[in-house]
Design a protein around this nucleic acid. Structure first.
Lengths: 246, 246
DNA sequence: GAGTGGTCTAGACCACGAC
DNA sequence: TCGTGGTCTAGACCACTCT
C-alpha cells in the first residue's frame, strides 16, 4: 500500500493526483532511470483504483516523457536525453540523413565564477552563488563544427569542477547522470542568427564575421528544474532543421 | 447505422479501424470543417461498439489534428492552420512575443507553367501538368519582411488562376478553403541559411548577399496530400525560433 | 433540464516477451 | 507458461454548455 487516496476532488481528477504521486516517487529516486516500475495491476491494487484509472495516470507521465511503456515487458523510467540532440539542428558535410555520428568533444577551458543575475534566476540560486563555466569544441572527423559555452550550477555539478576534463566523455548528458546524478529530461532551444567574432572564428576554422546559427539552450532535469545553460555556435551554411506545424 | 464492423483483427485494432472509417467520412465532406460530428454515444450505438472504444478512435483523430473536443459542446472537425504560421520563425522589429500581427500581402506576380519533375511527384500529378506560381511580398507596417514563392497544383487551384489577385486576402490558407475547398491541415517546414540575390534583396529592401533564412514548406490537406510548395525568405537577423526536445 | 464530453469501475480477453 | 501492457465491454456518475 503506497498512499491511499483522499476523498473526492480537491481540484483535480483522480488519475491526475495519481500521476503526481507517481511522479513524486520517481523524483525521490524510488525507481532509477531505466528501471521498471510495478505492473499496472499492482499499482491499481496498491492505490485502490481501477486499472483504467492507473493507466490514465501512467499515460500522463508517458506523454510527459517521464515513463515509457514496453508491451509485454513493463513500464520504465525514462533514461533522459542522450546529449547528441544538438546535431538535429545541423547537417554537416558528408553526413546522410540517417547518420547519427557523435562529434568528438574537446574541453577548451573550465573555470568557476559567480553566477550572473539571470543565471541565479534560472537556476534558482542565491545571488552570487558559484557556477562552473566550460568552453567546448566539438569536431567531426577532426573538423571543428560546433563551439559551445556551458554554464552549470554548483554545488550540483561539484564533481565535474573537481575532475580532470581530459577524461570526460564525448556526450555530456550521460556523464552528468553518472557523475552528478543529474538526468536531463527536456531541453528548450532558441535558434537565431549571428556572426562569429575573431576568437570564435579561429576555433571553428572559419573567417571572422562568418555567418553562424546561435542555439541558446536551457536543459531541465526530471523535476523540471533548469540545470544547464548552453550557447552553441555552428556554421550557418550547415544549418538545417525541419519543423512540423499542427 | 453507418458501417458495421467486420469480424476480428485483419491487422488493426477495432478503434484503429473506427478512426479510419471516421476519417474517411470527414474526407468525403460528410461534416465540413468547423462542424460538429455526432455525439460519442450516438457513434458508439451506430457502430455497435462500447463508448470507450469510440473514444479511443476519436482520440487518435484528435492527436492527428483532424478533430477537436469541446467539453459540453461536442466534437468538431478542425478548421485547419490559419496561415499566419510562417511568423513563428521570425520576430520582426518592435513585435513583442505575444503580438501575432498578420503581415500585409502583396502579390508580385502570378503565372501558369508546367510542373517540374519534383513538383509532379509531390503533387501526384501526371508529368507536365500545369501549376500556378505566385511571387508574394509580405510587409509589416509598410516594411517588407518576407518574400515568398508559392506553387499550387491545377486544376485544384483553378479558381485562383482565374481570379484577380488584387482582391485576395492577407492570409492564403483561409482563402484556399473559401475559393477552392482546400483545407490546410499540416505543414512541414525545413529551415536553412542562404543569401539574397539581387532581385530578392531589392524586394526586401536589403543589400545584395544579405544573409537570409530560407523556409521550404510543404503544406498538406486533410487527406494528407501535399497541395502547396512554398519557399520563404526573410532577414536572418530577424530569425528566432524555439524548439522543445523530448 | 437535456445533451455533451470527462472520469471511473470491474471485469474479460488478447498480444507481446521472457523463461 | 506466466507476467506484462493493450484492447474492449457495459454500465455509472460527474462537469460543462446551452436554452
Amino acid at each position: 500500500m503506497s498512499t491511499l487516496l483522499t476523498d473526492h476532488t480537491p481540484g483535480q481528477s483522480r488519475y491526475g493526483k495519481l500521476a503526481q504521486a507517481l511522479r513524486d516517487r520517481i523524483l525521490q529516486g524510488e525507481w532509477a532511470p531505466g528501471e521498471v516500475i510495478p505492473a499496472e495491476s499492482t499499482l491499481a491494487q496498491n492505490y485502490g483504483v481501477a486499472l483504467g484509472t492507473i493507466r490514465q495516470a501512467l499515460s500522463l507521465l508517458v506523454e510527459d516523457g517521464v515513463l515509457q511503456r514496453r508491451h509485454g515487458k513493463g513500464t520504465f523510467v525514462t533514461k533522459g536525453v542522450d546529449g547528441a540532440s544538438m546535431m538535429r539542428f545541423f547537417r554537416f558535410r558528408g553526413l546522410d540523413d540517417g547518420a547519427s555520428i557523435t562529434p568528438h568533444s574537446h574541453i577548451l577551458s573550465s573555470r568557476l565564477r559567480a553566477a550572473s543575475v539571470r543565471e541565479a534566476q534560472v537556476f534558482s540560486m542565491t545571488q552570487g552563488a558559484q557556477v562552473l563555466q566550460l568552453e567546448r569544441l566539438r569536431s567531426l572527423d577532426t573538423e571543428p563544427c560546433l563551439l559551445e559555452t556551458i554554464v552549470l550550477p554548483l554545488p550540483l555539478f561539484g564533481a565535474l569542477a573537481d575532475s580532470d576534463s581530459h577524461g570526460w566523455d564525448d556526450l555530456l548528458y550521460p556523464m552528468y547522470q553518472e557523475r552528478c546524478g543529474v538526468v536531463i529530461q527536456k531541453t528548450q532551444d532558441t535558434l537565431s542568427f549571428s556572426q562569429l567574432n575573431a576568437t570564435q572564428a579561429k576555433r571553428l576554422k572559419l573567417a571572422v564575421s562568418h555567418p553562424c546559427v546561435l542555439v541558446e539552450r536551457q536543459a531541465f532535469d526530471i523535476a523540471g528544474r533548469c540545470v544547464e545553460l548552453r550557447t552553441t555556435r555552428g556554421d550557418a551554411y550547415s544549418f538545417k532543421y525541419t519543423a512540423q506545424v499542427q
